[in-house]
Design a binder for these strands. Structure first.
Lengths: 177, 177
DNA sequence: GTCTATAGGTGGATAGAC
DNA sequence: GTCTATCCACCTATAGAC
């Protein structure tokens, strides 16, 4: 992966999370990076290509993060705590979940993006279910979907209220019950 | 309230919930209603004025709905069930929560819209807390915020997965525990 | 790979006739 | 109130030079 291409993805991810995918232009990205807007088209022919790449890139990053946690943190409770802390840090940067944002803008993106989003959330949910199963829950998949829903919703509310603690407060019950 | 003004609000609400507030134009609304785009500016000088009106209109509608339920449905459990059924119906119309959508697009709207959104969610949460208190919960406000978070997140996931049951499945535990 | 230049379209918004 | 006409800014995308 080219340095410029990676930089585009990183800035585009931040802008998507802060303003929405429809809330920034190639010119916005170019100005921030210090290149010209036409150069971005060399890496991402259309804006929809950029959307697809954003979801896939985030999917890979999070998959790697989950795998690393699986070995570096020995208990599922600790892993879930790490996930909560990670998403909580979004709030202070005025960021929403990237895939949650694109899911909100669902009817403004292509079917391919929609499929990639489903894939992302399916894998996220599967990983969460694995943790809950290890914690002894019999309804681990339902618990996982519930955790995921509450995470997305609490991120929306937390940013609106400028209170990162909302995320933690809404999710601690999944760890301490 | 003028008929045309109301029609604009109704169509704008649907488009906001389906495509996002940044995902439609005055021309889109005009074509759907059968008027000219310039006419909409007579009622809503700027698009931000429209956003403010949308949140206030929805806030009033929901406040009225809550008040009516308070007398027409005698048990808090039944009222929460009605709320769940109401939001579940969004999914089949490919709609997300209007205020949730604008909360996602937070950094693309004015501070006034942000304040109105906070007001909407505060009142929604207060009403929910009242129901949980009546059901005998001591942590009614926390329960209310949790319900609200799960509702918003499950609406995102349900629409993505084209499965309205996700909303009901994620929220029934708040009624049956 | 990155640039300049530009095409072609759409956006929000306003002026002024009716 | 609703219209026509129009302005100006911005957007996505492409062609072609370097």
């Amino acid at each position: 992966m080219n340095d410029t291409k990676l930089k585009i993805l990183e800035v585009a991810a931040i802008y998507t999370q802060q303003r929405g995918f429809g809330g920034f232009s190639y010119l916005d990205l170019a100005d921030e990076i210090g290149i010209k807007a036409a150069s971005i088209h060399y890496y991402f022919k259309s804006k929809d290509d950029l959307a697809i790449a954003l979801v896939e890139h985030t999917h890979e990053l999070h998959t790697d993060g989950f795998q690393n946690m699986q070995t570096s943190i020995d208990r599922p409770k600790g892993r879930l705590e790490a996930v909560i802390a990670y998403f909580q840090s979004y709030v202070v940067e005025e960021k929403f979940c990237l895939c949650g944002m694109l899911a909100a803008e669902l009817n403004s993106v292509s079917e391919i993006v929609s499929q990639r989003l489903e894939s992302y959330f399916n894998d996220f949910q599967t990983w969460l279910a694995k943790q809950f199963k290890e914690m002894g829950y019999s309804d681990s998949d339902n618990k996982a979907m519930s955790f995921l829903s509450t995470l997305e919703g609490s991120l929306l509310l937390a940013r609106l209220r400028k209170d990162p603690d909302v995320v933690r407060n809404m999710l601690t019950s999944y760890i301490n019950d």
